[in-house]
Structure formats: C-alpha cells, structure tokens
C-alpha cells in the first residue's frame, strides 16, 4: 500500500498523466460522437460506438510507458531504487497503479462513447442486450489495463521514451497487420498476435469467437474463444512485464 501511495504521488505530481487521461477520453468519446452524427442509422451498432477505443488505448499505453521511461530519462529510477531496494516491489507497485488507472479510463471511455451515441441517436436501439454487447463495451477497460501492463514491460526493457513508444505504437498498428503478408504462415501468425486477440475479445462471436458480421464477409473462425483471446492477450502482456522485471533486477540502475 505504501508503495502504491508513492507511485500515486509520483504519477500525479507531473502534468503528462493528466494530459494523457484527458486526451484518451477526448479522442475516444469524441470519435464515437462524430461517428454517431455522421453514420447512417442502420450502420450504428453497439460495436460501432466502440470503434474509437484504439485511440484511447494508444494514449494510455503512452502514459504507462512514460511513467517508467521518464524515471530512466531523469535518473529518478536511482532515487526510487535507493529508497526501495526491492526493485520488483517498486516496479510492480507502479505497474498496478498505471494498470488500474488505464482500466478505469478504459471503462469511462467505453461507456462514454456508448452514452454519447445513445444521446445523439436516441432512435437507434443501442441497449446492451447480449453478453457479447456487454463484453464489447465493458471489456474495453480490461484491454486498456493489460495494454498498460505491456507498456510498463516494454518501457523497462527499452528504457528510452522514443524507442519504447515506437515499439508500442508500431507493433499493434503495423507489425501485427503486416505479418499477414508473409506467404502461407502469415495468417496463422496473425491469429496469435496479442492485439489481434484483444480485438477478438471485444468483438468476437460468443459461439466461436469469429467477428460478428456487421454486414461484412464472414471470416474463418479464430483459434480461441473471446475469453480465451482475452486470456491470451493478458498472458502475453504479463510475459513482457516479467521480462522487463527480470532485466531491471539484473541491470545496473
């Protein structure tokens, strides 16, 4: 608890986390607002209101990564380890704090987006009837939370803000999509990419995890169920974090 309080003081005594929180909410909810105003009524579904979650996710991942890389950048990591020689405890406290914060912001962003759409298009039925619709909205917080876990891990491994952010932004947006271009095995690899699985958790069909067709052509069923996909995404992010913790304990601060 003490260490959580320490990390809370550290995180909120600088400005960038506040800006990141505002930006994450503004981008996600703002996008949902624009979409509901411009989309044809029959296109607007519960799933569509969450289309902007990736913007907020990216910003919260940036915040989580900066929470650790700025400590290396300004040397405060040494002050941290000097005050708390148990590095794993200090770094886990930081991870828990940014994870909870990211999860919270994810929920606010998701229900905010859904709420904005409901208010702007009162005639469209956007009520959450099914398990899948609930998961699509309420699950965003979980994805944000584990996105933050991965970010702290990458931040610990790379230590430089620019490098860590490049990896965190380029990996989900480019690498995971581009692997599909590899002949023969590309699609199989794509199936096991972490953020692909996060997306499948949110939008997957409860029966077999395949994307619910919003009028789009049906895809072959993915290897994991929605919750299986979530477990896989969480495990992948935790693996990155553990690697980061091991390296931080071994390296000179």
């Amino acid at each position: 608890m003490t260490l959580l309080a320490v990390e809370r003081i550290k995180l909120f005594s600088t400005r960038s986390p506040w800006l990141c929180v505002l930006l994450a909410l503004g981008l996600t909810v703002g996008f949902a607002g624009l979409l509901s105003l411009n989309a044809p009524a029959d296109y607007l579904t519960v799933s569509a209101t969450q289309a902007g979650y990736q913007f907020g996710l990216m910003v919260m991942m940036v915040m989580a990564a900066l929470a650790i890389t700025t400590e290396y950048r300004f040397g405060t990591i040494r002050a941290t380890f000097q005050a708390v020689p148990n590095r794993t405890a200090a770094l886990l406290a930081k991870t828990v704090l940014v994870t909870v914060l990211a999860g919270l912001i994810g929920e606010i962003a998701a229900f905010g987006s859904w709420g904005v759409a409901t208010v702007l298009q009162p005639d469209v039925d956007l009520a959450l009837h099914t398990e899948q619709q609930w998961r699509n909205v309420a699950g965003v917080g979980l994805v944000f939370a584990f996105g933050a876990v991965a970010s702290v891990g990458v931040g610990l491994l790379i230590r430089h803000s620019a490098g860590a952010l490049s990896v965190l932004l380029l990996f989900p947006m480019l690498v995971e999509e581009l692997v599909q271009l590899i002949p023969r095995v590309g699609n199989d690899i794509h199936d096991w990419m972490p953020f692909v699985n996060a997306e499948r958790f949110l939008t997957g069909n409860p029966a077999d995890g395949s994307a619910v067709s919003d009028g789009m052509s049906a895809m072959p069923a993915p290897p994991l169920s929605p919750w299986g996909s979530m477990a896989y995404f969480a495990a992948a992010t935790i693996a990155v974090l553990v690697a980061g913790l091991v390296v931080a304990n071994r390296r000179d601060a």
Binding site: T2, L3, I9, S13, R15, F74, G75, R78, V84
Partner: peptide, 29 residues
C-alpha cells in the same frame, strides 16, 4: 533512507515535479 542518505547527482529529479512533491514521495516510500 533512515540508515543511509546520499546525494550522488543533483539532477536526479523530475524537472516538472516540485521540490516538495519530490521529497514527499521519498518520505512516503
């Protein structure tokens, strides 16, 4: 910190954090 106090580099402070906040988190830890 109750056994050893050290000043190795005066620049090991987050530049956008106030002096008081810097000491507050250290004290809390």
């Amino acid at each position: 910190l109750t056994t050893v106090g050290a000043l190795l580099d005066a620049k090991w402070v987050h530049p956008n954090r106030s002096a008081r906040a810097h000491l507050r988190w250290l004290a809390k830890s």
